[in-house]
Computed example of a mutant assay.
Amino acid sequence: EAFAERMHERVRKEFWGYAPDEKFTSDDLVEEAYAGIRPAPGYPAQPDHTEKDTLFRLLDATNQTGVELTESYAMWPGSSVSGLYIGHPESYYFGVAKVERDQVEDYARRKGMAVKDVERWLGPVLNYVPTDAAKEVETAA
């Protein structure tokens, strides 16, 4: 996490250079006083871990870094982190609200995935009980 923080600082100051003169204390960094954000797959602003696959393909990440994705999209070695840098000064962290079935169906169509697979990955943010799970609950009762 410290390395992720340092890289974000370098992006702001050097690589993108939109904040070359910023000087923050450790407390300022904890409070995220800087411009821009770095949301990561699996966190509230981007709850779909499968997007790591897209990120890894675009960056050829495994060949470039040796970091691998497990079948559950965890990164190995476990000390690895990934995320997106967004440098807009008005960007802010947010959480994706609960999603409805029509949103999941649309998302599944756009990702080329089965609805049940999207439901698996987005389970914590679903605002409904998936059909298969509903049948299991009824059978158990």
Rank of each mutant, 00 (worst) to 15 (best):
E1D: 08
E1N: 03
A2F: 11
A2Q: 02
A4G: 06
R6F: 13
R6I: 03
H8Y: 01
E9Y: 04
V11G: 03
K13E: 14
E14V: 09
E14G: 01
F15S: 01
W16T: 02
Y18E: 01
Y18C: 06
A19G: 14
P20T: 06
D21N: 11
E22S: 05
E22H: 10
K23N: 15
K23P: 00
F24D: 05
T25Q: 11
D27R: 13
V30D: 10
E31A: 15
E31K: 15
E31Y: 09
E32C: 06
A33R: 15
G36N: 09
G36K: 10
P41T: 09
Y43V: 04
P44K: 06
P44N: 08
P44I: 11
P44L: 03
A45R: 07
Q46V: 12
Q46R: 04
D48N: 15
H49M: 10
T50Y: 14
E51T: 12
D53Y: 08
L55F: 15
F56V: 07
R57G: 01
R57L: 01
L58P: 02
L59G: 02
D60K: 02
A61S: 01
N63G: 11
N63V: 02
Q64H: 03
Q64P: 00
T65R: 09
T65A: 04
G66N: 02
G66V: 02
G66F: 04
V67R: 02
E68Q: 12
E68K: 13
L69Q: 01
L69V: 02
T70V: 13
E71I: 13
Y73W: 13
Y73V: 04
A74N: 13
W76R: 14
P77S: 06
G78M: 07
V81G: 02
G83L: 00
Y85N: 00
Y85C: 08
Y85I: 04
Y85L: 10
G87N: 02
H88F: 00
P89D: 03
P89F: 05
E90F: 05
E90N: 13
S91C: 09
S91I: 05
Y92C: 06
Y93T: 06
F94C: 03
G95Q: 13
G95H: 14
V96R: 08
V96H: 11
A97V: 08
E100V: 09
D102G: 02
D102W: 03
D102C: 06
D102L: 03
D102Y: 10
Q103T: 12
Q103V: 10
V104D: 07
V104F: 12
Y107W: 12
A108I: 12
A108R: 07
R109G: 09
K111I: 09
K111V: 08
K111A: 06
G112T: 05
G112H: 05
G112F: 05
M113D: 07
V118P: 08
E119W: 15
P124A: 14
P124V: 15
V125G: 10
L126H: 08
N127L: 04
Y128R: 07
Y128F: 15
V129N: 03
V129T: 13
P130W: 12
P130D: 09
A133P: 00
A134P: 01
A134W: 09
A134Y: 10
E136H: 07
A140R: 13
